[in-house]
Structures are given as C-alpha cells and as structure tokens.
C-alpha cells in the first residue's frame, strides 16, 4: 500500500474566506443558542461577518462566506435540507441580492448600516415569500409581517453597527492573513 497524500492548492483568498466563514459559523451557532420569544426570529449576528467580508473583499467573498455558513450551520444544527434549511437559504440569497444592489450606493453617504438594513429586510422578504409559497400557503402568515419587520429593524441596526465598528479597525496585515498557508 502506498500512502497517497492529497494536497489541495489553496490561495490566500481561500484562507481568508475560510477564516471569515469559521467566524460566521461560530456566531451563527451562538445565535441559535440564544432563546427569543418568537420562533424564527434571531439576531443574525453572523451577518456582521458577511458585511465585513463585503466591505473588505467584495461581493463574491461575502457570498462564499454566507453560503458556507448556511450549509455548515444546516449540518451542525441538524436541519440540513429540511424546511428550516431552505428558509435560511432563501433569506441568505435574498440578502445577498440586496447587498449586491446596496453596495453600489455611494460609500460616502451610505455605510454598513444601510447595507445591513437592506439585507435584513430582504431576508425577511425572502423567508416570508418562501413560507407563503411553500410551507404555509395562507395569507394569515402576513399577520406576522410587522413582528418580523420590527425584528429586521433591530437586528439590521445592531449588525450594521457591529460591522461598522469592526471595519473601523485596521485591516489585518498580510503576514497574518497567510500565516497558516
């Protein structure tokens, strides 16, 4: 038997994305452990990582971080490919679309807070649409819109502030970024 070693070539960018995704997954797991009164409402702390990735490394990096987080969290929390997973996927896809649009706004006037609020509202819009079309085909679902909108307002503001605060920190040095390469 010969021992074969499979070695994947990774770029510094892969490491960056992996590190950000790891942070996002840790935050998302912490988040899901915080009890909140209404099921389906969470703080979405991991989204601040997405915002940092978006501001520092662009939309593609943000999409990678979000995608990895959604799949990994699905596996870790045990809802992979269940309705809850598709709900979080729908929310994530809609937020990414909103982020792609909001990042085009003038950076001088609109910062992470605006992106975060756009993403938070897109998130609930995506989730409610999927729930209405697939899980609960009843207009009674729209009774919950105000509650979800209020939650999006709070979590969007909180995450936007966290991201803006993190982005005020100096960018990590290159040496640190490739330390584990």
């Amino acid at each position: 038997m010969t021992r074969s070693v499979i070695r994947l070539k990774t770029t510094p960018e892969d490491h960056r994305i992996a590190r950000l995704a790891a942070a996002a997954i840790a935050l998302a797991l912490t988040d899901s452990a915080i009890p909140l009164p209404l099921p389906g409402i969470r703080l979405g702390l991991a989204n601040s990582v997405t915002l940092v990735a978006l501001a520092r490394y662009g939309w593609t990096a943000a999409a990678w971080v979000t995608g990895l987080r959604v799949v990994a969290c699905g596996l870790l929390l045990g809802h992979f490919l269940s309705p809850a997973f598709f709900m979080s996927l729908a929310g994530a896809l809609c937020s990414l679309c909103a982020l792609a649009l909001s990042i085009r706004l003038s950076r001088r006037c609109f910062g992470p807070l605006t992106w975060s609020l756009f993403a938070a509202f897109a998130h609930i819009a995506g989730q409610l649409s999927l729930a209405r079309l697939w899980l609960i085909p009843d207009n009674g679902l729209f009774y919950l819109v105000p509650l979800f909108a209020a939650a999006a307002l709070v979590s969007g503001t909180v995450n936007g502030l966290i991201a803006a605060r993190l982005l005020n920190e100096p960018k990590p040095a290159c040496a640190l970024e490739t330390r584990n390469a």
């Binding site: 006037c109 609109f110 605006t114 005020n168």
Partner: peptide
C-alpha cells in the same frame, strides 16, 4: 459616529415601514 448621512435616511425609511 458610525452612521453615515444616508444611513439615517435608511433607518428612518425602515422605521416608517415597520
């Protein structure tokens, strides 16, 4: 201090929507 001018506008719009 983390708010940029347009962010207030977004926050206002979001609150009004809520």
């Amino acid at each position: 201090a983390l708010f940029r001018p347009g962010d207030w506008l977004t926050l206002l719009a979001a609150s009004v929507f809520c």
